[in-house]
Structure formats: C-alpha cells, structure tokens
Design a protein around this nucleic acid. Structure first.
Lengths: 346, 346
DNA sequence: AATTGCTACCGAAACGTTTCGGTTAAAGTA
DNA sequence: TACTTTAACCGAAACGTTTCGGTAGCAATT
C-alpha cells in the first residue's frame, strides 16, 4: 500500500544523482568512499530494496531459472529425487538472488511447450533438464532457443553442460557384494527404457557381471513404481521351481525393489534367506521397511547444488564458452538386510 | 542471439504507433477492426511475444506466485501432497500467464525470511500458505506485508482467503465403518501437534467416537513418517496382552499407517484379522501394500486448482474486497483390506 | 600560465511495455 | 456553413533500474 521506496528516493535523501546511488550500491568504481557511505546509510534508513522488475528490464535478465518435470503424477509423488534435488538447487540460487520456477507437464509434448513459452517471454535465464530421455527433444530445443541449460546425469557426448553422479562404482560394488555372497542366478528389473538412466543402470549391472565372468541373467522391464516391482516379482518368481528362480535381484530403483520384496513375501519367499533384493536411490523408506533395503545411494541434493552452480555460471558467462561438466562423488553401495548369502541348493 | 522482436517492430511493420499495437493486442477499444487485423497479422508474422519484463515493470506485477514449503526433507520426500498440489496449481496458472516460484525452507525462521524477500523485491504477486501451523507466523507476516495470500485447510476464523477440504465427513465414515465392524477399543496416532491439520483430524476422530457413545481410547503423538508409525505400533501393541490392545487404529496419515502395519506384522499381529488400521491421505502406495490400506482419501490436486484460482482472484481484485473461501468436496472413506471385523475375544 | 590527466559526479538514454491526454478527421447537428 | 461530438490514432510519460558519455574541479606536468 505505502508506495515502494525507489532509487530516486535514496538519491534525493543522499543528495546525489541516481546513477551515483546505483554505482555505490553495486560497488562500482567512481564514487568516493565518503559519499558511498552516505548513500548506503540513506538506503538503509529508507529500507531500499532495488526493484527486481527494474533490474530485470535493464539487465535483460529474469534472475530466475526453470525446472520442468515431466513425469507421471504417481511417479513424481513418490519420487524422493525432486524434493532433495530442488532443495539443493535452492541453497545455491537463494544467496545469489535467483529463484526457481517449477512447472509440471504430464505429457512430453506439453513439457516441450512449457520450455518454449518459458523461453519466449524470457521468464527464465536458464533451465535444468532432468530425467533425460533417449534422443531427448528438449536438448535440440534449448540449443535452438539459445537457452542456457544444464543436463542431469547425461550420457557422455552430451552437447550441453552436465552434472553427473556415476552409477557404475556403486553397482559394481553391489555385484561384488552379491557374488561374494555366493549368488549365481541374477535378474535385473529395469526402469522405463525411454529414460537414459534406466539404461545406464542396466549397463553397469551387466558389465559388472560380465567382468565377474557370470551370466547376466534375466532382464525384465519395470517402470520405477511399487506396482512395477510387484509385477516383476510375479514374472520372475511366481510359479517357478526353486532352481529356476534368480536368487539375486537388482531393481532399478528403491520403490520398485520394495514392491518386489512385498510381492516376494506374499509368495512365501523371504529376503534375505530365500533371495536377495537390492534397489537403487537410497530413499529413506528403505531404512524402515523389513527387511531393510540394500541399495546404491545417490545424492540428489548435491546433484542439485552442482547443477545450480553450473547453470548460474553458464548464464553469467560473458564469453560464449561452454562451462565444464561436474562429476560428483559416485553413488555408493549401502548394505542392509535385504541381501544375504545365496540359499543353499538342497 | 538474433535480437528479440519488440512492440516497436510490430508498430513499424503495421505502420501504426506502438500504443495502437498495445491496444490492438490487448483487445482494448479505440482501434478499428481493420487496423487491428493488420496489427495482429504483423505481430504474428514477426513472431512477436510481449516481453514479460516490460509488462511487469509497467503493470507493477510479476505474474508469478510463490509457494514456500517448510518441512523436514524426509517428510517432503515421501509426501505425495505437494506433487499433486503443485500439479493442480499449474493447470490454473499456466493458461493465465502466471508461473509458480517454489522455495524450500527447512527451518521455520528461514521460511519466514523467504516470504519476506519474496515480498521485498516483489518477485511474486501472491503466495500460498500450506501446512498451516497453530499461530502460524506467516499469517501476520503476509498481512503486514500486504501480500495477497491463500491458506490451505485453514481453521475457521482464518483472516485470509482459504481453500479447504473437510476431514470430518470422511473420518466420521471411518468411525462408523469401524464401529459397524464391532470394534470397541480404539487408538489414534496423531501428526505433529504444531500442524493444525493434525489437530483437525484428531478432533474429527474424537468427536465421531463420542457421538457414537464410545470411548475415544488412546492417543499417541506421531510425526507423519513411516518410522513414527513404527514407534506408535511399539507403544500401542508391543508387550501387551490381547485384551489391553486397541483393535482399531487410525493413523493421521497413510505413510505412518503403513509403518504401523509393518511393525504390527513383525509383532505377529496381522491386519485385518488381529487388528484394523486406517490411514489418511489416499496415497497410491496404500493400494499396493498388503494388506491394502483403508484410508480417507483427499484430493490435493483439486485443492491446488482452487487455491490457485482464489489466489489469482485475490491478486487481480481491483477493490480491496476479500475473496470468498472455497470448500471442495469432503475427503471420503475408502475401504480396503486393512480393516475388518473386530477380533472375537476368546 | 596553459595543458593534461584523473576522479567524482551528473544527465540522459535504454530496456519494453501500458496508459493517458491530446490531435485529427470524419460524422452528426443546428 | 459552422459547430459539436465521436472514433481512431498518436506521442509521451511512467514503471525502476543500469550504463555510458560528458562535465566540472582539482592536482600534476611542462
């Protein structure tokens, strides 16, 4: 209601030109220490906060970055990734005067349109691209739009700056863990094949098993949901003789592993005695369910922190040079109680 | 890179003044149908999109609203509310040219600061206030700041516009359901007492039982987490004689109910035979766990839709009049398999 | 004493809209 | 014909910054 105090008010109060106020408050040279102090005092006294709108127009920047998530509502609901990822982003954005615009598109096309509008009216200075798909259309789009962007967990050769957390070490550790426990019959429940990280996890799993000289075993496609884990358990376990069942199963994420375990229990198969099951993600829920879930724990918060850092760097880059990728520490195996020695053949 | 096309370019192309372009494109009167068509054609041909920044400065509006969530990371992680709530908000915001700024504060004080900064540099035109606490400090803050705001599931007498989904019908239905099954020993696991909705649910539960002429039974404080449910089960079930245990338990949310059920199972108590357990929320996970979870299903998406509608109405209100509250259809009982007939005393 | 160089400061333009008062020309009235 | 009304259109101000070119004043140089 009371009209906002502007730079003009500060200039009047300090008895200087508005350009001097601007210079003083932004630590630009060309203003004496004396008047700088006077200006700062006046600004403080008046409670001056520079208008983002004025600054935006002048600087040709929105001081805002965007995240468009495109997921099934349910997957999003129960996915711990975004909460922490966004939390991490925030810790970087906030002190630097940026804010995050979040949009959701259920359909991929819809998502693309969101990016387009975001770019068209310059609502954001840059965007995050998470949940990368194979041949993700958002990549050529942001390139065409000239919109600064950072990819999350991109494959090598990604044409934009990317932040990554390697899956391979942790999954290799998991395989070694299972092999060490004497398992020989493996299975892998993937995520939807259109996401590149589903493929990355499968590949790490297969490679590690091959390197160990063991058969890769069965591979069934899941969908990252609890129900997908249930379905996979039905396919891999139900109505099979003991000797035909895998004894060590990795699910592509924790939620589906928990679903898998639940269904296995109903079928009379208890982990870790009858079979071993591991997930991927490291969600908190995995520490509460029984058996507690062996998993490969990622760090979405740190991923968010680094992604935000990279994006701001890309945006504020004066020259057109690309910003170097960042790899955070790899995801690591966390052994809990859902994995154990391979059952003795009787 | 190619410089953005502005209203000036459109005016030049159409051979009119920029004010005419503005009038034409915003459907203001004072421009003939003929030139309007010419202007629209020119704008389209040039691919003109009005600059949000220019518009913002001129209109003294950010065309942005804010949501600041303040929750434990873990609660947020596994809480299905925000995904759907935000999804609902988006469907309203997007067609009206608004966007959502999401911020997270883990500490309550931090959250307050976020609101303050958001308001100070006028980054948003209004905010949502969700997860209302008792004597929530955000309420006096936004009132003091003159920041348009909408509260979610506020108690009666709330000084701001609010959107609500009543709990009482659904919880009453739940009580009737349990009473009809012959239960007589009840217990309730609350949410953290600092949230008003935890109190609202408890009150509805107690009132319904009282109205049925039955003892309210034990009440233990939970925290909305899986682990909180586990702890509550320990307190209510472990080491007790059958006749001292409650046979019907409502947990204040689904996640803690699932934790409760998990721990009960470990203690050798199976739902629905040995006891009945119900939750509140209606999360998808409840349909997958065994037994499937009886619950009172809310509609966070619709809540988001209506909250956004109300907020935009409040913002665009010319007169200072308050916008009327909205009540969406009450949360309803969904009976699944975690509740059943009271166990026969032997 | 005249010239140069530098610092501190100022004024105005630019960013891209919307809005408001004013001007023109056509149409209507006496 | 002379006057008023009205619609269509225009120009400029306003929104609140930053930036850039310019000027005044002073010390240093010749």
């Amino acid at each position: 209601m009371s009209n906002r105090v502007t730079i003009i008010d500060v200039a009047a109060k300090a008895g200087v030109a508005i350009s001097s106020v601007s210079s003083a408050l932004n630590n630009r040279p060309g203003v004496s220490e004396d008047t700088r102090r006077r200006i700062v005092a006046a600004a403080k006294e008046l409670g001056f906060v520079p208008s983002l709108r004025g600054r935006s127009l002048s600087a040709k920047r929105a001081f805002t970055v965007g995240l468009v998530v495109h997921r099934d509502p349910y997957v999003l609901e129960s996915d711990p990734f975004f909460g922490s990822f966004i939390g991490g982003i925030e810790t970087v954005l906030d002190p630097r005067g940026y804010a995050l615009i979040l949009q959701m598109g259920s359909e991929p096309v819809e998502t693309l349109d969101r990016y387009r509008t975001l770019a068209a009216n310059r609502r954001v200075d840059g965007v995050f691209i998470s949940d990368l798909g194979v041949d993700d259309p958002r990549v050529p789009l942001v390139l065409e739009l000239g919109l600064p962007a950072v990819g999350v967990n991109a494959d090598p050769g990604f044409p934009l700056t990317a932040v990554r957390q390697s899956h391979v070490e942790g999954i290799r550790e998991l395989v070694e863990h299972l092999v060490g426990l004497g398992h020989t019959r493996f299975a892998h429940v993937t995520g939807p094949h259109e996401f590149i990280h589903a493929g990355q996890r499968l590949r790490a799993w297969s490679d590690a098993l091959e390197d160990a000289g063991l058969p890769v075993g069965e591979i069934v496609e899941g969908d990252f949901t609890y129900d997908g884990g249930v379905a996979a358990a039905n396919g891999l376990l139900a109505g099979r003789a003991t000797r035909d069942r895998p004894t060590a199963v990795m699910c592509s994420n924790d939620l589906s592993a928990i679903g898998f375990l639940g269904r296995a229990g109903e079928l009379g198969l208890r982990a870790p005695d009858d079979l071993s099951v591991a997930g991927f993600d490291g969600i908190e829920l995995g520490t509460y369910v029984r058996p507690t879930l062996t998993t490969v724990a990622t760090n979405p918060r740190l991923l968010g922190v680094e992604a935000a850092r990279l994006l701001l760097e890309t945006i504020e880059r004066i020259d057109g040079m690309a910003v170097a990728d960042v790899d955070i520490e790899p995801a690591r195996l966390v052994v809990r109680t859902s994995t154990g020695p391979a059952p003795r053949p009787r």
